[in-house]
């Protein structure tokens, strides 16, 4: 036995190594399964994948790309939080600073373009699932989870849109949140809003409807910026993360990535 082999053996049989990896080198079917099953980062993943499941022409890998982009956006987003302050006073200048002065400020462009790409890839993923009929039983529930994830992606994109706090952002969010005025039974200009009143006093007005709660005021101002920041950085990513775990787990439970019939 050479010295290298001895060192190798010592290393792989050390308590440190064996406490982390509770299986041998994945060169047998059993160890290959254990490599996935006993790994916290892979445990949502199926142990084996059908050959068609990794055929690019079938899946386009759009789900995987969406998840990859989500990870990219999480990392770059957290990096941006070190420089960005979500107040009307600082927000715009911090974005300019990121662009002009901060080393590796390209992080902000990565975040922006990654966000655009994720919206596109999530849509394409949905399109592929629709075309291949993968929404059919037993995958109906996972389709529903996927639809919620699509909405969350759009909401993440929408809330992130306001954060640069420039004219484009403010007016885009003004226009976008005006839709909330027409929410049935919850927006003050929506259906049934005139029915919600106490005697002559309307209970649903511009200072008490769902848009007011969303913006923290009657129009897009500093409170709206802070609210969108919290939703963008904490609220929606948290919900999306939980639902993604469910989504991936259900892919496995529903029989893996759907294949050609």
């Amino acid at each position: 036995m050479t010295a290298i082999q001895r060192i190798k053996q010592k290393f792989f049989e050390s308590q440190v190594w064996r406490s982390i990896f509770r299986h041998g080198y994945p060169d047998t079917r059993r160890n290959q399964s254990l490599a996935v099953l006993s790994n916290v980062f892979l445990h949502l993943h199926p142990v084996s994948v059908r050959k068609s499941g990794i055929r690019l022409s079938y899946t386009w890998c759009m789900g995987g790309i969406s998840f990859f982009l989500f990870l990219v956006l999480t990392v770059t987003g957290v990096m941006l939080m070190f420089y960005y302050r979500p107040t009307a006073e600082f927000a715009y200048n911090d974005i300019v600073q990121l662009r002009e002065d901060v080393a590796m400020g390209i992080m902000r462009e990565l975040h922006r373009w990654g966000a655009h790409a994720m919206v596109i890839s999530v849509w394409l993923h949905m399109y592929r699932v629709f075309l291949t009929g993968s929404y059919k039983p037993p995958r109906e529930f996972n389709w529903a989870v996927g639809v919620i994830l699509l909405k969350l992606t759009l909401l993440l994109s929408f809330t992130g849109y306001l954060l640069p706090w420039d004219q484009l952002a403010i007016w885009a969010i003004t226009v976008g949140t005006n839709m909330a005025r027409a929410t049935p039974g919850a927006g003050h200009e929506g259906p049934f809003s005139s029915m919600i009143k106490l005697g002559d006093i309307p209970l649903l007005h511009s200072g008490s409807d769902v848009r007011f709660a969303l913006l923290g005021g009657r129009f897009v101002a500093a409170p709206a910026l802070l609210r969108f920041y919290v939703l963008h950085c904490v609220g929606f990513p948290l919900i999306a993360g939980v639902l993604m775990a469910v989504h991936f787990w259900r892919v496995r439970k529903d029989g893996g990535v759907s294949g050609p019939l």
């Binding site: 709660a213 005021g217 009657r218 101002a221 409170p223």
Partner: peptide
């Protein structure tokens, strides 16, 4: 929690 989202004082 829902009520918490409606501010009482507005800077408008």
């Amino acid at each position: 929690l829902g009520r918490f989202m409606f501010p009482n004082v507005l800077f408008e």
